Amino acid sequence: MYIPPAFRESELPVLHEMMQAARLANLVTATPSGLICTPLPLLLDPGEEEHGVLYGHLARANSQWKEPVIGDALALFNGPDAYVTPSWYATKQETGKVVPTWNYIAVHAYGPVEFFEDADRLLAVVTRLTELHERPRAQPWAVSDAPPEFVKAQLRGIVGLRLPIARLEGKRKMSQNRGAADRAGVAAGLAASADANDRGVAGLIPP
């Protein structure tokens, strides 16, 4: 990923936080048949290995797990993003020398991926993923709420994955390369948007 110095994020705890906030990732593998990409919710265990380990599962019918992987796999995490119009820049009124851009957050995690079929490991991953996303609910649903035989049958339809992170790249492009007046204009413009995503990005623009 191309990352100018102004937008580079390299602090491991911050990168982990960005990944955990992304919710849905894209798992990309290079194979003899070409590139394969699958959108997946992935669980980050920050305490495993040097940079953390990603866990998830995909459908058994998905050919991605059957294809030999060439090199490392890549997990893509995209955070909040928004279009930035030049009209919000104070510089537009001063010189007119402005162009549109896009603000966004992205983290790329690289590492060797392992696919596994062991039922106990699969159950552990599914349980942890479920607990992660059910935790905020007033009455969380648990895997154990479903009949055991039903759960076993569902597990036969998926394959687990484990990806120890060997390398992380993080980018937080939030108008840091603009002057204070331009940043203020972007933040105000996004905050006034009818789009909730735009308003979320507004709060990430540095003062």
Rank of each mutant, 00 (worst) to 15 (best):
K92I: 00
G157W: 05
H108L: 08
K97I: 00
Q64F: 01
A166G: 10
L76Q: 14
A30C: 08
K152E: 11
V125E: 01
T95L: 01
P112M: 15
A124I: 05
P5L: 15
L58D: 04
P41A: 07
D120E: 13
L40N: 14
F116Q: 00
E149F: 11
A119T: 05
R199W: 02
G200D: 00
S63R: 15
I165E: 11
D45K: 03
G34D: 01
M18E: 04
E11C: 15
S33W: 14
A61K: 14
L204C: 11
T101R: 07
G47H: 14
Q93P: 14
M174I: 03
A6S: 10
E94K: 15
I36S: 14
F115N: 11
K97V: 09
A90E: 12
N103L: 00
W65F: 03
H57Y: 08
D195H: 10
I36V: 15
L40M: 09
P32Y: 09
G200I: 00
Y2M: 09
A59T: 09
F116Y: 07
F7E: 01
G179K: 05
S87G: 03
P207V: 06
P148S: 12
P5D: 11
G71K: 10
V113S: 14
H57K: 08
L40W: 07
S10D: 07
V151R: 03
Y104E: 05
P140S: 02
E169G: 09
G179P: 06
P41E: 05
A184D: 12
G34Q: 13
A184L: 04
T38Q: 04
N26A: 14
E48Q: 11
R137Q: 08
I70T: 12
A106W: 06
L123E: 07
I3R: 13
Q93K: 14
L204D: 05
D182Y: 00
A138F: 13
A192H: 11
A30M: 02
A188K: 12
K152T: 09
N103I: 02
L76V: 13
K173G: 01
A153W: 10
L12N: 10
K92E: 08
H51C: 12
T91D: 03
M1R: 15
C37M: 12
L43R: 06
P147D: 08
A187I: 02
G200M: 06
V107N: 04
S63H: 13
T95C: 03
S87K: 15
P100M: 04
V126R: 06
E67M: 13
Q176W: 04
L58S: 08
T85N: 06
K92Y: 07
A188F: 09
E50A: 12
H16R: 09
E11V: 12
A192C: 08
T101F: 03
V201W: 09
Q20Y: 13
T38A: 04
G157N: 04
R23W: 11
T85K: 12
T127L: 04
F77M: 05
